[in-house]
Structures are given as structure tokens and as C-alpha cells.
Design a protein around this nucleic acid. Structure first.
Lengths: 141, 141
DNA sequence: ATAAGTGCAAACGTTTTGCCCTAGC
DNA sequence: GCTAGGGCAAAACGTTTGCACTTAT
């Protein structure tokens, strides 16, 4: 992975934000530093960086994808009214997850969605059998 | 909410599946019973039914939205290779979540994504202040 | 020198919408 | 009869891609 100006600035801008921007929100910011950058470059870099595990992709099918410059373990809470996404720190000896949710987050918590990712039995068989699968959509977030 | 033929068939077909179909997968099935139905109707109904809490919308499932006819509490596991989504039963006295994940699911589990949904502080204030918010995107999944 | 990366514009697939008509209440 | 809901086609939307050019290695 080459160290291009565009990539450096995209990552730098993303890491300065705690707002989990969409590709074009980030594009607007990056454009202030590299006016000639294209939206496609932002998309390509966000995709590549999340595949490499440098950043995280917050999937939401059908709407806009959001990205998180912090790849460390933590949760997210999304406002069902305006769509913003905030961080919820992972439980540690110092912070209790549900305690945080109830008070400091300020959110009125409505629901919790849990999704595991992995490799299904059929794909595991196919994989060990030899022929690789035509990967349809995504890598693990 | 009126009890139309289309709505009845869409819900019925969805409930017969455990495969969490996309809108157009369901459309193909429904079309066998109502050949003249339009894809837009399927979309409109899936959206309405999930807003009403009758079915569930699986936001994170790849690029295409997937729907679940079972609105009861359970989790999902998505294959990062082929995109299929399976159910993981919620922990009950009889089934242990992690026990299930490790064995009967057959999946090689890679990661777990947790997202809460709720109403953010700003929207709560706006809401109690009176003026309703121009809801941007969604209801809780 | 060479291949990864970029910019541009056009293409893509999914979802939403406006319009007028149909049918449930 | 009134209105939510349907069908159709077109638009909108976020994202991806082909191509020729650039640039980091």
C-alpha cells in the first residue's frame, strides 16, 4: 500500500473526527486540503483502509455507509431520528457498558442489534475443498 | 394499515422463509402468486411492515437490505464469503448463545458487531421542545 | 521502470418517487 | 365515497468501474 498524499490526508481527516462521516462528508473536508481530489479516490481509499483493518466501516445497507477512524474495539449507537452515530466504549474494568448507555451517552436507548460475521458451513467446505468462492459482498467489519 | 392481497402475500411468503431475503428475491416469489405485482409495492410494504414492527429489517447485511419475517428477539450471523444470513437464537435457559455459535451454527465465527439505536440528546431536546425533527433516514431495526 | 494509485465521467444496482388508477373500508 | 394503497416508469441515490495519466517505490 503506497503512501500517497491523498491517502494520508483522508486518514488524517477521518481520525480527527468522532462523527463517523460518510464518504462524501469526508470528501468535502479533504477537498479543503486537496482541491483536485475526486470522490472516487475517497471511496477507494476508505474501502482499502477498512480491508486492511486500519479503519472501520459501519455498514448500513441501502443508506449511506459510515466510517470510523478508530479501529479499536468499541460499540456504536445510532440516532433513529437524525442518523448520527456515536461511540460507546467497550466495557472495561473502569466503565460499565450499560451504565454508560443509561447516563453519559445522553441517548434514550431503544434497541440493540447484534450481528456476528464468519464463514458459513458451505463456504468453509468449498474453501477447504480447494476452489475459492466468488466473494459476493464484503469482508468482516 | 389496510389488509390488501399484496400485503398479505408478501408477509406470508416472507414468513415461510428462514433465508432473510432481499426485496427482489421476495418479489420473485410473490410474483408467482400475484404476477402483476410491482417491485415498488414489495419495497413499500417491507418498509411499512418493519416500521410497524411486524417484520425486521437487517441493516448491516451486505449491500442489499435483507428482511426477516420473525420479529422476535434473536441474533444474526452473516457469511463474509457468500453474504447469506442465518439466525442465532437468543440466549434462553435452554440454549447458550456462545455454545450455539461454536457448534450447531456450523460457522467459523470471526467477529461480532453491536449497534444500539435510540434517540440522541439533540433530538430528544428538539422533540420535547415541540418541533418535530425532519426524520432523516430510519426507524430502529 | 513498473505497477499502484489517481481523476474523470459514465455505468451500475438498489431504493424511492410522482402520477394516475384501483380497491378496502 | 373517501383515501390508503397499487402499478408503472422514471428519478434519485450511493457506490463502483474503465480508461488514460501520474507518481511512489
Amino acid at each position: 500500500m503506497r503512501n500517497t498524499v491523498q491517502r494520508r490526508v483522508i486518514l488524517d481527516e477521518l481520525r480527527q473526527l468522532t462523527t463517523h462521516p460518510t464518504a462524501d462528508e469526508l470528501y468535502e473536508l479533504v477537498r479543503r486540503r486537496i482541491p483536485a481530489i475526486s470522490l472516487a479516490t475517497v471511496y477507494r481509499n476508505l474501502e482499502l483502509l477498512s480491508e486492511e483493518g486500519v479503519i472501520r466501516r459501519l455498514w448500513r445497507a441501502g443508506t449511506r455507509r459510515r466510517y470510523d477512524g478508530d479501529a479499536r474495539d468499541h460499540y456504536h449507537i445510532r440516532c433513529t431520528s437524525c442518523g448520527r452515530v456515536d461511540d460507546i466504549p467497550a466495557s472495561t474494568p473502569g466503565t460499565r457498558l450499560f451504565g454508560y448507555l443509561l447516563k453519559p451517552s445522553g441517548y434514550e436507548v431503544a434497541a440493540c442489534y447484534v450481528e456476528f460475521t464468519g464463514v458459513c458451513p458451505a463456504c468453509r467446505a468449498r474453501r477447504s475443498g480447494g476452489a475459492p468462492v466468488a466473494a459476493s459482498s464484503s469482508s468482516a467489519p
